[in-house]
């Protein structure tokens, strides 16, 4: 029994060492930024949203892309207390006044429109190297393993958070990102049986998270921030395995 416990501590030590080599470490208390995802946050390593990391969001239609944009804006709002954000995309950028509804100051966002995916990736990498930025959002149709590796190396140096949104019908490949999310819109729940469209509601699938617990949640955006309406469901094993 004692030997088993000893093995366990050795395993934990080794695991921590590997994570540190990969550029991951437990965030200090001052570095923690709460993104307001209450019970969802438990899925993250150490219960804190991984900053200085690259998050990948996948969507395949215009509707899911819009839902993803909204969710990303909600995540950006607490991050942007540190500074401004670069929003690089190959498609038309989001409508600035709408970002305000997700708590983001639209005039603190610098939009960069690239013609080609390679140009966009170059700009995203340059942005992630710039330590004065709070976050970089990149919307690209394609992200290869090499490109994602480069982005990951850039954030390890500068500690900028990157949110990469891949809007494509292609199935997702293997990438070196810390987390992979899929956001799909859900029918809004009517407020106290009032008619009309309610708050935006999404199914948030955390398909992959390094050192964390993937899962599926139902999240609603209220004027106060995120609200998890339906607690975690275990993510289907197939979805996790596929993401590599």
């Amino acid at each position: 029994m004692g030997q088993l416990r000893f093995h366990k501590t050795v395993f934990e030590q080794l695991q921590n060492e590997i994570l540190q080599l990969q550029g991951l470490r437990a965030p200090l208390e001052a570095e923690r930024v709460s993104v307001g995802l209450d019970s969802l946050q438990e899925a993250f390593p150490d219960g804190a949203f991984p900053l200085s990391a690259v998050h990948e969001f996948i969507s395949c239609t215009k509707e899911t892309a819009a839902a993803t944009t909204g969710f990303m804006a909600g995540l950006l709002a607490p991050l942007m207390h540190r500074g401004c954000c670069l929003w690089i995309s190959t498609r038309p950028h989001p409508y600035p006044p709408a970002l305000k509804l997700f708590g983001v100051e639209p005039d603190q966002v610098i939009f960069v429109t690239a013609r080609k995916a390679t140009e966009a990736l170059w700009a995203i990498e340059e942005g992630l190297k710039c330590a004065t930025l709070a976050a970089v959002v990149g919307e690209v149709p394609e992200l290869s393993f090499t490109a994602s590796r480069r982005l990951q190396l850039a954030v390890e140096q500068s500690h900028v958070t990157g949110l990469i949104h891949r809007c494509t019908a292609q199935p997702p490949g293997i990438v070196a990102c810390t987390a992979r999310w899929r956001i799909t819109p859900l029918a809004s729940s009517a407020m106290e049986d009032l008619p009309g469209v309610g708050f935006a509601r999404w199914q948030v699938e955390l398909l992959k998270i390094r050192n964390g617990k993937p899962g599926i949640w139902q999240v609603q955006w209220t004027p106060q921030g995120f609200a998890v309406t339906l607690p975690e469901k275990k993510a289907p094993l197939s979805a996790i395995q596929k993401t590599g």
Binding site: P106, I110, F111, E119, W122, A123, E126, T132
Partner: peptide
């Protein structure tokens, strides 16, 4: 650092690509 970054992006992608809205 930020303005230098934006200058580099402008040089690479063209002048009309960067926008900030008010």
């Amino acid at each position: 650092e930020l303005t230098n970054l934006l200058d580099r992006i402008t040089g690479h992608l063209g002048t009309a690509c960067i926008r900030r809205y008010l």
